[in-house]
């Protein structure tokens, strides 16, 4: 296993863990959304890079083109990006509403307010 040959996967893994860590560790809701985005992007990178073939070009039917990259994962990721955008938009909208309702977007403070409400 030579290192450079798989470096795209390494990048995907590093991105993924970074995003995951931010989602878990950050108390600020906006930062959580950012982390979630990085997490999703890592998967996009993973998909796009896995279909790349060394020396392949875009899949255009033309003379002289014999090796080309599989377009399907790219198309799939287009869909996934759309989903990701929708998720982010929704998450941000929720954060706005949460700020209206609680006056803060820090998780600890919201937790404290909720605790008071329960008792």
């Amino acid at each position: 296993m030579e290192f450079p040959g798989l470096f795209n996967y390494w990048i995907a893994v590093v991105l993924m863990m970074t995003g995951f860590y931010i989602v878990i560790a950050q108390g600020n809701l906006i930062k959580k959304v950012v982390g979630l985005n990085i997490f999703q992007v890592s998967v996009f990178v993973f998909y796009i890079s896995m279909s790349k073939i060394k020396g392949g070009t875009a899949p255009i039917l033309d003379e002289g083109i014999e090796i080309y990259t599989n377009p399907l994962p790219h198309v799939l990721i287009l869909t996934a990006i759309v989903v990701g955008v929708a998720t982010t938009a929704l998450a941000l909208a929720l954060v706005v509403r949460i700020r209206d309702a609680y006056g803060t977007i820090e998780e600890d403070e919201i937790g404290k307010l909720e605790q008071e409400e329960e008792t």
Binding site: V23, V43, A91
Partner: peptide, 27 residues
């Protein structure tokens, strides 16, 4: 209740992670 908003947000985070895991498996 305003707690519905935080509940939805939490669900969104967990749900998105779940869906992303699924899509990695598919890939």
């Amino acid at each position: 209740d305003r707690r519905a908003l935080t509940a939805a947000f939490r669900y969104l985070v967990m749900g998105t992670i779940g869906a992303t895991f699924y899509i990695i498996g598919v890939g």
